[in-house]
C-alpha cells in the first residue's frame, strides 16, 4: 500500500505502524501528524497506517 510521507509517495508494508516509519529518528525530537491529527509519541507504536494516509514528520529548526 501507499502513503504520503512528508509530501512524497511511499510504499509501505500492510499493517505498518507509525513507529515503523521512524527507525533512525530520535523519537523525542520530532512531532508526528497523520491526516492533520497529531499522534503523540507513546501512541506511535500502536498506530497502524492505512492506504492513502498523509503522514508528516516535523522537527524544530532555526528561525526568526
Amino acid at each position: 500500500m501507499e502513503i504520503k510521507l512528508n509530501g512524497k509517495n511511499k510504499k509501505i508494508e500492510k499493517n505498518s505502524t507509525l513507529k515503523d516509519l521512524l527507525p533512525t529518528l530520535n523519537p523525542d525530537t520530532i512531532v508526528t501528524e497523520v491526516n492533520l491529527e497529531i499522534i503523540k509519541k507513546d501512541k506511535r507504536k500502536d498506530f497502524i497506517l492505512k492506504n492513502g494516509d498523509c503522514v508528516e514528520i516535523i522537527t524544530f529548526m532555526g528561525g526568526g
Binding site: 525530537t29 516535523i58 524544530f60 529548526m61 528561525g63 526568526g64
Partner: peptide, 19 residues
C-alpha cells in the same frame, strides 16, 4: 528566542534546534 517548525529531511536528518 524564536524557533521554526519544518518537515524532517528524511534523507539527512539535522539536529533538533531545541538541543
Amino acid at each position: 528566542i524564536t524557533i521554526a517548525l519544518r518537515r524532517v529531511n528524511l534523507e539527512n536528518p539535522q539536529d533538533n534546534i531545541l538541543n
